[in-house]
Nucleic acid binder design. Structure first.
Lengths: 318, 318
DNA sequence: CCATCTTATGCTCACGGAGAGTATAAATGG
DNA sequence: CCATTTATACTCTCCGTGAGCATAAGATGG
């Protein structure tokens, strides 16, 4: 029945649950995107929601900074999960996971913590298209997905399944869409091709490469990667992952690392410069090979100036 | 301290809270966007999270359908709120509001329920630019915002405040951006120009037009409107709000109602048709004035075909 | 029947952004 | 000096998009 909102907090008091924060903390080091993990890379950092804090956002920020000793540059709420078999403990108190995406420049972790940084493509080997389409996509994923599609009960369902696979994984001559990270993971889960699905549903099946995670953390990670890949195209968030000074090539490599695909160098520079996102520091990079590059820094002014209007990045279709 | 996720559900058990679902249910009737409200239009429908359901999404769906007797077309999670003074009841159990956006064709409400549909521009009069910039923007909002900016402690802060207002409200010759619904509401809240801010902070101040809501429901509504305005530009969700058959003008009017601004008719038709989003039914609209229009229906096939690739809508800059 | 009004529908044009390629510059190591 | 690598400057083409013009097909009132 519909009730007014004022009454609801009183009438709910029987439905006590617990809320967890789960963080997808991203950094880029050596041209590789990394995420902070615990438990030897099997889980994302998570913790109880602290009511001492004014909001969820500040709660997460304080908690992460206490753990790593570093400030969090950019924080954004991802999604609130309560679905799925959460590791099979049906009798445990119900938990809601409120997940966040956080970007940071630092990749060091404070002493004495079990957290460390893991490359995110270890969890999603099929997502890295920087060196072309990964061979495992055609060799491993495609046949498994095809078999899954064929196993559907009706011809119509078979076609629908296969169409979905083709769209998500860029098969049948379709273009690869780097933003469909979550859709791909969920398809693999549904097809019981990831260990989590096998675990949650008590099956035994052969799975595809890619490190699994506790609970639904890999799903949360996929959500975070997808969000970030979408975001870098229209918001200047890449800079949160860069050191104070950088060359345009370093910036490009970071974007490519996140997007999992290469960009056209000249167009990338044109876009960055015409949007006045960066300014020269005057210094020159000291690296070894090739013509030395100018160093740039992010023009923080643009954040105020243009209301985060847009950072367009050229992610080509080939 | 970092703990593995497996341990967390056990170690959290002291932090019990309650979770509410809050729904922004949208329909379009007579060319006006409406939202479902309760409490005489002062609150969004909300209810406790039921653990009988498999997921949050299905929980909301079941709950809404039980209330209204109508299926929910499209459902999407919006945001999870725990911030802000929730109506001043500091000692009440802490509540998290998980908000959802739902789209439906129906605008009838089942008998015996207190819910009904309210036009959303009653809550945000400054958001409707279909008949040009609303006079109240220049007459009421701008002077108040200017005063608020000037009241900042330092000249730098004054400039920052004003720049933010100018960007959000399209002042100083800037273009109106219909997607900044939430930013606008939050600015007004911060400037104590909405009753909710006055209420939450125990102030007395004169406020601007626009119906207030319980708790932070107007903020949640702003989040929903913003999300929907962004979404209609790249996903074919408008059709969820349309009857089975419609003319292109009706479709256009719905888009304009949601976006709060007019679109170029010929370009709109071109876009809709070239994307093959609709097909002719063969019938002709029976309305009165003008040349009769063909009736169209949504091609549901495109959802599968193109993986929600994109529905671009021409929202011009003038 | 004609003038007029309203909406539907077809077509053209100009501009700008994006993808892609060519060419040249500046460094290093043999 | 040459090969190699990276930096940087231009150019060209295509297409999406905003905008306007023109015509068609109904209704209504004189």
């Amino acid at each position: 029945m519909a009730r007014s909102a004022q009454k609801s907090s009183a009438s709910n008091s029987g439905n006590a649950i617990t809320a967890d924060l789960v963080a997808v903390l991203v950094a880029v080091a050596d041209g590789e995107p990394k995420i902070m993990t615990i438990g030897g890379g099997t889980a994302l950092p998570s913790g109880p929601f602290e009511f001492a804090h004014r909001s969820l956002q500040t709660g997460l920020r304080a908690w992460v900074e206490a753990q790593t000793g570093h400030p969090l540059g950019y924080v954004e709420q991802l999604y609130t999960f309560a679905d799925r078999g959460r590791a099979g403990d049906v009798k445990a108190p119900h938990t809601i996971s409120i997940s966040y995406l956080g970007l940071t420049r630092e990749d060091r972790v404070g002493e004495g913590f079990e957290a460390h940084w893991s490359g995110w493509y270890g969890y999603f080997p099929w997502e890295d298209h920087r060196a072309g389409v990964p061979p495992m996509l055609a060799k491993v994923l495609t046949p498994r997905l095809k078999a899954w599609a064929k196993s559907a009960p009706s011809p119509t369902l078979q076609r629908e399944r296969w169409q979905r696979c083709a769209i998500n994984f860029g098969l049948d001559g379709r273009a690869w869409n780097e933003e469909l990270v979550l859709q791909r993971y969920e398809t693999l889960y549904e097809a019981s091709l990831v260990p989590e699905a096998v675990r949650d549903n008590g099956l035994t099946a052969s799975v595809v490469p890619g490190t699994p995670m506790t609970s639904d953390h890999r799903r949360i990670l996929a959500t975070g990667i997808a969000r970030l890949r979408a975001k870098i195209k229209y918001r200047p968030v890449v800079f949160e992952l860069m050191p104070a000074e950088f060359t345009l090539l370093q910036l490009q490599r970071s974007v490519e690392a996140l997007a999992g695909r290469l960009v056209h160098k000249q167009n990338f520079r044109r876009l960055i410069e015409q949007q006045e996102l960066v300014e020269e520091t005057g210094a020159i990079a000291t690296e070894a090979v090739g013509r030395p590059a100018k160093l740039f820094r992010f023009r923080h002014a643009v954040l105020a100036e243009r209301a985060v209007a847009g950072t367009k990045l050229p992610l080509s279709r080939t």
